[in-house]
Simulated assay, not measured.
Amino acid sequence: MNAEASDTGEDVPAGELRFNFRSGRLCLAFVATVGERWRGRYERLREPSDLARWYCEAGLLREPPDVTGSGLEAARVLREAVHRLARAVIAGQAPSPADEAAVNAAAAAPPLVPVLSGGTGRLTLPAARGQQAALSTVARDAVDLFSGPAAARVRECASPECALLFVDTSRPGRRRWCSSAACGGKDRAAAYRRRRAAAPEG
């Protein structure tokens, strides 16, 4: 069990167990498999089947791979390393060598295999070590993110009820929310209500 998040599922709102894909990068969406890190720390990868389902919902695979208990634990280790690396980038701090080593170890396995199917490309499992291949694909996205120019665009959602990590793809690079429609809309609505409450009665 991941010591940093509860995976019992007890007293966790059903909505908090749904996967979130607003981060704009595969590895940051993987980090979001822990909900409310600042408060409830809801573990969304409670069982190996949850991780297999995440790979499908993330669009990596059409069919869920076989995931073992040790594979789930390896995925959680990678996830937390990616989270700490992202936080270091945001804070302008040097990355932890241990966290980089964890990402590199996962990325060392052969990744998912690209194939043509009906004129379109998709990823599929290799003949062996399927769960390692899926995790390697996530780790390689982390290597690409943190070693490239997009690292300077890693942000944390400004909403106190979200704090999702995301990549700011806006041209000016001043995006505050993971989603203007979701958290941005909530923030604007809350600000409007505050203005209404503070306005003198006419």
Results as ranks from 00 to 15, higher is better:
Ala3Lys: 09
Asp7Glu: 12
Thr8Met: 06
Gly9His: 08
Val12Leu: 07
Val12Ile: 13
Gly15Phe: 06
Leu17Met: 12
Leu17Thr: 12
Gly24Asp: 07
Arg25Gly: 04
Leu26Cys: 06
Leu28Cys: 03
Leu28Ile: 02
Phe30Trp: 05
Phe30Asp: 04
Thr33Trp: 07
Thr33Val: 06
Gly35Cys: 05
Trp38Val: 07
Arg39His: 14
Gly40Met: 10
Arg41Ser: 12
Tyr42Lys: 00
Glu43Val: 07
Leu45Asn: 00
Leu45Ile: 00
Leu51Thr: 00
Arg53Ile: 01
Trp54Tyr: 04
Tyr55Met: 01
Glu57Cys: 08
Gly59Gln: 01
Leu61Asp: 09
Glu63Asp: 14
Pro65Ala: 09
Gly69Leu: 15
Arg76Phe: 02
Val77Asn: 02
Val77Trp: 01
Arg79Phe: 03
Glu80Ala: 03
His83Met: 04
His83Glu: 11
Arg87Ser: 14
Ala88Lys: 13
Val89Trp: 12
Val89Phe: 10
Val89Leu: 13
Ile90Asp: 03
Gly92Phe: 10
Ala94Ser: 14
Ser96Phe: 02
Ser96Glu: 04
Ala98Leu: 12
Ala98Lys: 13
Ala98Gln: 14
Glu100Asp: 11
Ala102Cys: 04
Ala107Met: 03
Leu112Ile: 01
Leu112Gly: 05
Leu112Glu: 06
Pro114Trp: 01
Gly118Arg: 02
Pro126Phe: 01
Ala128Glu: 15
Arg129Phe: 05
Gln131Phe: 07
Gln132Val: 01
Gln132Ser: 09
Ala134Trp: 06
Leu135Cys: 02
Val138Phe: 00
Asp141Asn: 08
Ala142Asn: 03
Ala142Glu: 02
Ala142Tyr: 03
Leu145Glu: 01
Leu145Gly: 00
Gly148Leu: 03
Gly148Asn: 11
Ala151Pro: 07
Arg153Ala: 13
Glu156Thr: 09
Cys157Asp: 08
Cys157Tyr: 08
Ala158Tyr: 10
Ala158Arg: 11
Ala158Asn: 08
Pro160Leu: 08
Glu161Tyr: 13
Cys162Gln: 11
Leu164Tyr: 10
Phe166Thr: 03
Val167Glu: 09
Val167Pro: 11
Pro172Lys: 13
Arg175Asn: 06
Arg175Pro: 07
Ser179Leu: 07
Ser179Pro: 05
Ser179Tyr: 03
Cys183Arg: 04
Lys186Tyr: 09
Asp187Gly: 08
Tyr192Arg: 15
Tyr192Glu: 10
Tyr192Thr: 14
Arg193Val: 10
Arg193Ala: 14
Ala197Met: 02
Ala197His: 09
Ala197Gln: 13
Ala198Lys: 12
Glu201Ala: 12
Glu201Tyr: 04
